[in-house]
């Protein structure tokens, strides 16, 4: 074929930071929470993490080989997809769930559209939404007790709240992750550690997580208590469910979120709003997955209509106006 002119969507800025470097940063930031998951939920968690990552990497390599592309599993993006998918699953799911979810995430949500950079929804979340829709019973009900690892039928704190209950773990338990929940979403401290690392290294923009969690906090504070405004428990709302995991590690995905700072803020707020809507009035106890997926769909529209002002444009317009006035 020879050299082809490659046309890609913006941004076109070149920096010394490579795809691989950024991805490695994300993997490092996820490791504390993954270790935490294994400590809290034991061997099951480890097996789910391994299954998910291996399936994702193998699926990517096989697809690229079958379609005669360069094999890019070394860039860690498939590893991240696998890790993130595993972290959103309950620790008691059978191992075919992460395996199928990963293959779906890599092949259907990403590679079919042309691979990394061309997918329009976050692959890990698409994988999670698929397995949740495929096996609603085993994915939404396979919870384990932290530390003791015995299978519990007791629901997650968010499901308790959904059922109208109020008995949820205290603040300290929520921070260290001593509650039922998905693998990687419970240990807030470890997640924040990773999130802070990403913020400090400027891999992610603060606007998305702040917009997301802020909206969830304020919204729950206002509407969280049925029958009374401004009395909801906003703090628990952001510590429960997958809010922190989603806000720092999924809503910030470069490919599926807006490129402009203002767009990212809108993305965060929108994802927070949809999550709030589903949590308070929807059919599911948790809405983070769908909040982010919905905003993924909106991203092209946000990018289209929220464009940064051109340098000097405003001045130009004013000058033209005054010139017209003189005439």
């Amino acid at each position: 074929m020879g050299e082809k002119l490659i046309v890609t969507p913006s941004p076109h800025i070149k920096s010394p930071r490579t795809v691989k470097g950024v991805m490695l940063g994300v993997v490092i930031s996820l490791l504390p929470a993954c270790v935490g998951a294994v400590v809290l939920f034991g061997m099951n968690a480890l097996l789910i993490l391994i299954t998910s990552v291996v399936s994702a990497v193998v699926a990517e390599a096989l697809w690229q080989r079958a379609t005669k592309q360069e094999i890019t599993v070394g860039d860690f993006s498939a590893v991240i997809t696998g890790l993130l998918l595993a972290m959103t699953l309950p620790p008691g799911v059978p191992l075919y769930v992460p395996a199928v979810g990963s293959v779906f995430a890599i092949v259907i949500a990403k590679q079919i559209f042309g691979g990394l950079g061309s997918n329009f929804v976050n692959p890990a979340l698409a994988g999670r939404a698929f397995v949740l829709a495929a096996w609603p019973m085993s994915v939404a009900g396979a919870w384990l007790n932290p530390l003791t690892h015995d299978a519990v039928s007791s629901p997650t704190p968010l499901a308790v709240l959904k059922g109208g209950g109020t008995n949820i773990p205290g603040l300290w338990d929520l921070l260290i992750g001593n509650r039922t929940g998905s693998l990687g979403e419970t240990s807030i401290i470890l997640l924040l550690l990773g999130g802070l690392f990403l913020l400090v290294t400027k891999i992610i923009d603060w606007r998305t997580p702040v917009g997301f969690l802020g909206t969830l906090f304020v919204g729950t504070w206002i509407f969280g208590k049925p029958g009374a405004l401004f009395q909801g428990d906003g703090l628990s709302a952001i510590l429960l469910g997958g809010a922190v995991l989603g806000a720092f590690f999924m809503a910030t995905d470069y490919v599926t979120s807006p490129v402009t700072p203002k767009g990212r803020l809108i993305f965060g707020i929108g994802a927070g709003l949809v999550t709030l809507l589903i949590r308070l009035w929807g059919g599911y106890p948790e809405g983070v997955t769908y909040g982010i997926l919905f905003m993924n769909l909106m991203t092209p529209i946000i990018d289209r209509f929220v464009v940064p002002k051109y340098y000097g444009y405003e001045h130009d317009a004013r000058a033209r106006k005054s010139a017209e006035g003189k005439r």
Partner: peptide, 11 residues
Amino acid sequence: LSFQGFSRLFA
């Protein structure tokens, strides 16, 4: 799949 989150909203 993304719109499935809205099922039973406000039910």
